[in-house]
Amino acid sequence: MIKEYYQPLKLAEALTFLSVFPGPVHILAGGTDLLVNMRKGQIKPEGIVDLSKIEELKTISQEGDNLSIGALVTFSELAAHPLVQELISVLACGAKAVGSPQIRNRGTVGGNIANASPAADLVPVLVALDGVAVIAKQNGLRKVPVAELIVGPYKTSLEPGEIIIRIEVNVPPKGTGMAYKKVGRRNALAISRLNGVCLLKLEDEIIKDVSLIIGSATPTPHRFTDVEEYLVGKNISQELLEEAGVMAREHVLAVTGKRPSSNYKLPVVERLTVRLLQVAWKGDKAYA
């Protein structure tokens, strides 16, 4: 039974409410996860703080080498934003992979992180970009890498009274190749069976920098640093990418152990890795 529904217009008001309300409070942003869980009876909030009217959390801006994305920015807004399309197109790809148009019009970037689903579509992109969540509570701010904020399936290290207010991601250097793919039962409304993101910076065919994540394959999204370290400094070639595919497969197996789905998932992890690297290398035409 809801005892209190609070709809502040300012972040400060939301933080004050959270600091004084005694019962379990749920934060409502886009509602696309919370309302499903409430309907299933899995969540019975006593208090709801509805952030949807707080305009200061809905902006996207460039600050030096960073792009700052308000936590209440919806997936549709993120995908359509000129700065995103120009600077980090892979963010738009991740945002477009979410649910359906209706879900993308409601669901938010901050919510995707706070819900911490292992199958989140956008979170792997944020992690690949070394995204940092800026978290507010009544007496200050803290910054935590998105990869550390998510500590397990549907678990974050957010404490009561805290709200994710924005995410800061690095703008990749010019000429960075980017790729995002989602593997699901169909294009729309599918929960990711697997997804993946790759950022690749080459200099004269030598791999200078690479960020690789296969998402929905492990309990929490994280960069596959073993694969990345193997690739950096090497001459790019199809053979090298095939090796990376095998390594990614072994990485997932090492994290999750053998599971009933492994026979199906692991070969796809391998091919998805190769494909992501190829698209980041040669563009979409690599698989046209």
Partner: peptide, 16 residues
């Protein structure tokens, strides 16, 4: 002007 699922919106959210 945006299509949304009305089952995913709480009434107070449509204020204004």
């Amino acid at each position: 002007k945006k299509a949304v699922n009305s089952c995913m919106v709480l009434v107070p959210q449509v204020e204004g």
